[in-house]
Design a protein around this nucleic acid. Sequence first.
DNA 1: GCAACACATGGACGTGTGTCAATATCGCGA
DNA 2: TCGCGATATTGACACACGTCCATGTGTTGC
Lengths: 128, 128
Amino acid sequence: MTTTAPPLRIATDLEDACCPTGRADLLPADEAESLADVFKALADPTRVRLLRFLSESPSGIACACHLPEALGISQPTLSFHMHKLHEAGLVDREKRGRWVHWTVRPDALAAVQAYLQLPLRPGSADCC
Amino acid sequence: MTTTAPPLRIATDLEDACCPTGRADLLPADEAESLADVFKALADPTRVRLLRFLSESPSGIACACHLPEALGISQPTLSFHMHKLHEAGLVDREKRGRWVHWTVRPDALAAVQAYLQLPLRPGSADCC
DNA sequence: GCAACACATGGACGTGTGTCAATATCGCGA
DNA sequence: TCGCGATATTGACACACGTCCATGTGTTGC
């Protein structure tokens, strides 16, 4: 994810009449994939609520005691969602005795936050 | 999406010994769902690249002329992905003659950007 | 009018996802 | 040691997703 491959440029042949100058670059495939993986982890309302809940808990730490009933899901389903969040690197898992404590990893969101700052180019040029 | 329902509070009964004070709120279900819908639209590497491509094009406008070959996908697949992005409100669709021009809607990302600013509460209190 | 082009749609197929019930695993306390 | 409570895993199911081919719908140009 840290290695940034050289971006691809589209339609290198110059005899193409469409979009002669203002062609944009394409995000490298591996970079797009790792971004999509984080978005995939967030692409579920239950996980959206879970991550928010963790971040609002004191120091970002919380246990899962009452979450199933509050979210209206079963315990295995909650475990499944936490596994997804952990897999995406969005939360850390720490087992303390019988319970598991979850902590948010805000740094894991840095990449998607940077991506969402879409660099809108000013200008009036139409493409085709 | 603009209507903010009152957030739920978990485990209202006080005789519960776990997490007596520091319990966090739960994001309303409808709000979580609309956030997840946007994340779902971004949860695919092809769409991640498409949105970035559009945002890097002059004034955020681009046609789809060469995108299938550049992305290694077929024309119907590209149409499918653009439909998804449009459905999520991330891009606008404007038909000019034979071509379709796409424009990014940065305002549609405002909600998810705000969500990703997770409000990490300072403090050392453990929950359970 | 008709051919060529850009894009959308429908059908089909394999794969991934979200959910639960049932079961397994791990740690604590009696 | 034994049982209980918290969590993880497995199997099963319905459903959505991503992809393609084939075809349909407009639009431009000859």
